[in-house]
Design a protein around this nucleic acid. Sequence first.
DNA 1: AATAAAAACGGCACATATGCCGTTTTTATT
DNA 2: AATAAAAACGGCATATGTGCCGTTTTTATT
Lengths: 212, 212
Amino acid sequence: MSPKVTQAYKELKRQKIMEAGKIVFIRKGYEQTTMKDIIEESGLSKGGVYLYFSSKEEVFSALLEVSDNEYFSFIQRLLEEDGTQWDAITKLSEFIKRKIIEANDELAPAIYEYFFSVKRNNQVPPLLVKRYTRAQNCVKSLLERGVANGEFHPVVSLEEISKFMVSFMDGLSVNMIHLNSEIIGLDSQIDQMLFYLRHALQRSNSDKKNML
Amino acid sequence: MSPKVTQAYKELKRQKIMEAGKIVFIRKGYEQTTMKDIIEESGLSKGGVYLYFSSKEEVFSALLEVSDNEYFSFIQRLLEEDGTQWDAITKLSEFIKRKIIEANDELAPAIYEYFFSVKRNNQVPPLLVKRYTRAQNCVKSLLERGVANGEFHPVVSLEEISKFMVSFMDGLSVNMIHLNSEIIGLDSQIDQMLFYLRHALQRSNSDKKNML
DNA sequence: AATAAAAACGGCACATATGCCGTTTTTATT
DNA sequence: AATAAAAACGGCATATGTGCCGTTTTTATT
């Protein structure tokens, strides 16, 4: 006697359901997606799926965690790289631009929808606070490193600068989801962000980066 | 013989339904609200409400139009005022700040939800393009007036500056809806916006405003 | 006051999502 | 191969929204 499938098998099935969920969430968005959709897309049975996820909220938050980790690990890598912090910021802005362009074919729209959805239940959902501060701190770390190596001489606090950047990037994402890159002028807006940063950070000219 | 109620009566009833809709949309958001909710809140009957609005989408877009008009008329008034354009920008930023603070008790969250909802049906909904360009052009007009009177000497195109402002303000709104003013640092972010504008617009010092 | 037309009412049929739960199938061990 | 436990299945009861449509009420005119 003794049944039970391996833990690895369970994990695999979890991922299968999540993959199905991702496809549906991208196609239909968060609100319009139902467990039925995810069940049908996965090709599994109702009871089977419910054994792993008992609501679309559970499926989605699992997907969200994966999505977030991809995002933050990029910035983490930037922090470990050599080179000037201004280069890192340039790379970050390129990364953001790419992500924003791809946004409509990815989970981004559903993620915003999801946030509005969870907002209805909690007052200020802790997950959102965590996500926000995490994103903001990532950016801030990049800037702090630039201050530490004498590359930046910010005229305002890094806290304010990083928050400003996050606001701008969120706004750009939202507008990109509803409109398109031509209408919002994606490229030039990223340039404006860098223009702002040059003034706010008072960065030394490129020669100084070798001082460190 | 001859029945019919007056046109004014009809309009009044329309408004009654819209008021009920607004209350429910603020309370439950766009997606979660149903016609049933609006019908119950209005105190009218199912058939009666359906005579005026045959879907929540119709109720909402009527409310959206009213909301937009309030918004844009403020900027219109700014454009007609005397004084420097920098003062106008300052007033605008105060207005935005106030609106953002009030956002959670108003239609703002539902409006964003609504946009995600209509996005699922159309590709790029014309309404959204219209709203975006209208908002952006309003801001641009403010800046153009400042260029015309010699107050601003922009180092980049006003198109880019105004789009940047709109992105930032949208991002700030979205973050404010999900978080709160302490976490996002609302005041200092508005200051950062003005900091950006001072550099992008290269505004003359306050004495020069009298040149016009 | 009578009347005819429009407005308002509200029940009902239809459609759709949820998720429980009894049944069947698969699994690892003996 | 037999077995017992877990996993997978899928039907069904429940709940909920929509909006049509026959009936009742209200309205302005005669």
